[in-house]
């Protein structure tokens, strides 16, 4: 992994990233079922399917690999980049670039922290590593979610993290295309536009759930 060239690292990171981007879409689809006023039936059904289907089980491993790859290469690349400029400028760079593109590492860290929290709150409970809060079964994601989102600071944190993710994705999607060499004068503008739209859709979609629960369920 350390031996890979810059471009190989970037390409693997981009591929893993694109894979995660598609996963987000699936996850969002399930989350949006929370908005259905059916006492969580649809949501629980989907969650159970995800938790028990054999194919999905395999997929879960791939997903873990994707996350790990993306994170490890992200760290490697960031390390390389930090090392490439040992003395920094007295005046910070003010080139005309997308303001978000320079903060991929920072937004990435926020997303990572969120991920850890998310594991603590759901996945670890599911697999029994962490005890569920009193009164909620280990597999009852629905009530667990309602409980969490009824706490305003948690919802705020959740939304904040997804804004960070949106910012991360906004650059990440077009960046992945560029890294994979899929850059062409004819369609690059469309890629950028679709990337931005998708990242907005993801950030807004995930944020919708806590907002909805906070304002309409209590």
């Amino acid at each position: 992994m350390f031996l890979y060239s810059s471009i190989t690292r970037k390409v693997l990171m981009a591929l893993a990233g694109l894979f995660l981007v598609t996963f987000l879409c699936v996850h969002l689809g399930i989350n949006l079922m929370l908005l259905k006023n059916d006492g969580g039936r649809a949501f629980t059904e989907a969650a159970t399917f995800m938790g028990t289907n054999a194919l999905i089980k395999v997929f879960e491993i791939v997903l873990f690999a994707g996350f790990s790859l993306h994170i490890i290469f992200g760290l490697l690349v960031s390390g390389q980049n930090k090392g490439a400029r040992p003395t920094s400028y007295a005046v910070n760079n003010s080139s005309d670039t997308s303001p978000f593109s320079k903060y991929m590492f920072h937004t990435g860290i926020i997303v990572f922290i969120f991920l850890a929290l998310h594991f603590l709150d759901f996945y670890f409970i599911k697999i029994g590593l962490v005890a569920p809060p009193p009164g909620i079964a280990a597999h009852d994601f629905y009530n667990r979610t309602l409980l969490l989102f009824s706490t305003p600071w948690y919802s705020m944190l959740y939304i904040f993290c997804f804004i960070a993710l949106g910012i991360h994705l906004n650059h990440a999607i077009q960046s992945a295309f560029q890294t994979l060499g899929w850059n062409h004068g004819k369609y690059m503008d469309a890629v950028k536009l679709l990337g931005s739209a998708y990242s907005f859709f993801i950030a807004a979609g995930f944020s919708l759930v806590p907002i909805f629960i906070l304002f309409f369920r209590n």
């Binding site: 970037k10 690349v77 560029q178």
Partner: peptide
């Protein structure tokens, strides 16, 4: 040298 993060600076 560092790696590219496609900032286009």
């Amino acid at each position: 040298f560092g790696n590219c993060s496609n900032t286009s600076a």
